[in-house]
Design a protein around this nucleic acid. Structure first.
Length: 244
DNA sequence: CGTGTGCCCTGACAGC
DNA sequence: TGCTGTCAGGGCACAC
């Protein structure tokens, strides 16, 4: 294991090398936008790819942004992250549930605990825009900017709408739309924006299926035009005519 | 507590 | 061919 700098979003954990060297990987999994690698030493390596991170498998050479490199028996894995918005943490597996970023995490959107009932409870009395709450990982875990825009479009809900004012039938539609968007994206191999690639190097083709994201000024099926707005530096794309 | 803003950082791209 | 400005899949600290 080699570190090529001292930190990403935050410093790499102390003792990373000693705790990983010689360990055997027992399980690979995911929670929200974090990847989890369990070892037989009782530790879990938690990584987040941020906006620009990727794992490079057996790279021909170690590049400028290959910050963290793991050698396994068969492969070399390089965590490459130009913007360094990603993170690496090492936590005892038994303490994962108490890990700060996981403790308050909402349900997985494709799991059994995500429902209109859950959203109704999370949105109750909230005046914040529904888009902001869907991006809040404590409400639902793992949705990002693109998929939230797409799901709100599919369910006909304006991103600016106060979350607590959405009726139950429309929350049902929203839950369905979120699942549909995620399943379609997974099926297509992810979303390509600029340079995202799948582990095999192929691009993710879900971008071609975006209905509103990145389509400012283009016509919606309803005859309206897709608009873009920016809130605290992040873009929202939506059709004001069919999203209310 | 809930809400909204701005920053972390680099690279790609458009326009001049 | 540079240069400059804008924008980007996320998360979190901070102010009110």
């Amino acid at each position: 294991m080699t570190l090529h700098r001292a930190d990403l979003r935050r410093p790499f954990p102390d003792g990373l090398g000693q705790r990983l060297t010689g360990a055997t990987v027992t399980t690979l999994s995911r929670r929200a936008k974090y990847g989890l690698i369990d070892t037989d030493r009782g530790d879990t390596l938690i990584f987040h790819l941020g906006m620009s991170g990727r794992w490079r498998i057996d790279p021909s050479e170690i590049g400028k942004h290959d910050h963290f490199v793991i050698e396994t028996a068969k492969h070399r894995l390089a965590l490459n992250d130009p913007r360094r918005f990603g993170s690496v943490d090492l936590v005892p597996t038994g303490e994962l549930a108490e890990w700060p970023a996981f403790k308050a995490l909402g349900p997985e959107p494709l799991g059994p605990d995500f429902s209109a009932r859950h959203l109704a409870a999370a949105f109750k009395d909230r005046i914040a825009p529904v888009k902001a709450l869907l991006l809040d990982q404590r409400v639902v875990a793992g949705l990002g900017n693109i998929y939230v825009c797409e799901a709100l479009y599919l369910s006909g809900i304006a991103p600016t709408r106060a979350a607590g004012t959405i009726t139950r039938p429309r929350l049902e539609k929203l839950v369905t739309a979120i699942r549909e968007v995620l399943e379609a994206a997974i099926e297509a191999g992810g979303s390509t924006l600029r340079d995202y690639a799948r582990p095999d190097g192929e691009l993710g083709y879900f971008a071609k299926q975006w209905r509103v994201y990145g389509r400012e000024g283009e016509p919606c099926e309803c005859g309206g035009l897709v608009e873009r707005r920016v809130d605290s530096g992040r873009s929202t794309f939506w059709c004001p005519k069919c999203q209310r």
